[in-house]
Simulated scan of single mutants.
Amino acid sequence: MTDAHNIRLELVRLTQQLIVDGNKVVQAFATRHGLHPTDVEALALVRVAQDRGKPLTAGALATDLGLTSGAITALVDRLERTGHISRVRDNADRRKVFLHYSIAGLALADEFFVPLLERSVGSLDEFTDEELAIAHRFLTVTGVAMTTHRGSLVGHSSSPTTPN
């Protein structure tokens, strides 16, 4: 095997380890707050969508999580009951209901995840702008590969999206 091939394999292994470690962080947060890991994944998706100014509906969240309408209703009800999120009707189309983090939910998530964000961002200080651009490209194409593979496992073609 060539050095380039070995480096590629090692990058894949490191990415896999990062996913495992990320899942452990999610599990720790879930355990600490009496949540299921799927609840935490839902909260992350709601937060990202809200931060991008494109809040999710329960239907879109169900699609992202691969849940049935009954399961997503139970999940959203549970997260709303525990004060993590709220349902907000769209002003333009009152039939649409978007999911938003509550103030208490944001504070709880920030208490747990902001230190991780700060550590992660701080660790990037040792890289040049060019190296960060390459890392960004690597993570983007690896994310597309992951999304595409997930689509093949659940029996449909996922349309990978490129993060903003």
Rank of each mutant, 00 (worst) to 15 (best):
M1G: 12
M1T: 14
D3K: 06
H5S: 09
N6L: 13
N6G: 07
I7C: 06
R8G: 09
R8H: 07
E10T: 09
V12C: 09
R13D: 06
L14H: 07
T15I: 04
Q17D: 15
Q17A: 14
Q17R: 13
L18E: 12
L18M: 10
I19V: 15
I19W: 06
K24E: 15
V26S: 06
Q27F: 06
A28V: 12
A28E: 15
F29R: 05
A30E: 05
T31C: 00
T31W: 08
R32L: 15
H33I: 08
H33E: 13
H33C: 03
G34C: 02
D39S: 07
E41C: 05
E41G: 08
A42F: 02
L43P: 01
L43H: 01
A44T: 11
L45Q: 12
R47A: 10
V48Y: 06
V48C: 06
V48T: 14
V48W: 10
Q50V: 02
R52C: 04
P55I: 03
T57G: 04
A58P: 11
A60F: 01
T63H: 06
T63P: 01
D64G: 07
D64C: 08
G66M: 08
G66P: 08
G66S: 10
G66Y: 10
L67C: 05
T68E: 15
T68D: 09
S69E: 14
S69I: 14
G70A: 12
G70W: 04
T73Q: 12
T73H: 13
A74C: 05
L75I: 01
V76N: 00
V76S: 01
D77V: 04
D77H: 07
R78A: 03
R78S: 04
R78P: 00
T82M: 07
T82L: 15
T82C: 03
H84E: 08
I85R: 01
I85E: 03
S86C: 11
R87Y: 05
V88G: 00
N91T: 14
N91G: 09
D93S: 07
R94A: 15
R95F: 11
Y101V: 00
S102C: 02
A104L: 10
G105A: 02
A107I: 11
A107D: 15
L108H: 10
D110R: 08
F113N: 01
V114A: 13
V114C: 00
V114M: 07
P115Y: 12
E118K: 11
R119A: 13
R119K: 15
S120H: 09
V121D: 00
V121A: 00
L124G: 01
L124N: 00
L124C: 01
E126V: 11
E126C: 05
T128Q: 02
D129N: 14
D129V: 15
D129T: 13
E130M: 09
E130G: 09
E131Y: 00
I134F: 06
I134N: 05
A135C: 03
R137A: 15
F138S: 09
L139N: 12
L139W: 11
T142Q: 11
T142R: 03
G143K: 00
T147W: 04
R150D: 12
R150W: 12
G151S: 03
G151T: 06
S152D: 14
L153W: 05
L153T: 13
H156Q: 11
S157Q: 15
S157M: 12
S158L: 08
S158F: 06
S159Q: 11
P160N: 04
T161K: 05
T162R: 01
P163E: 04
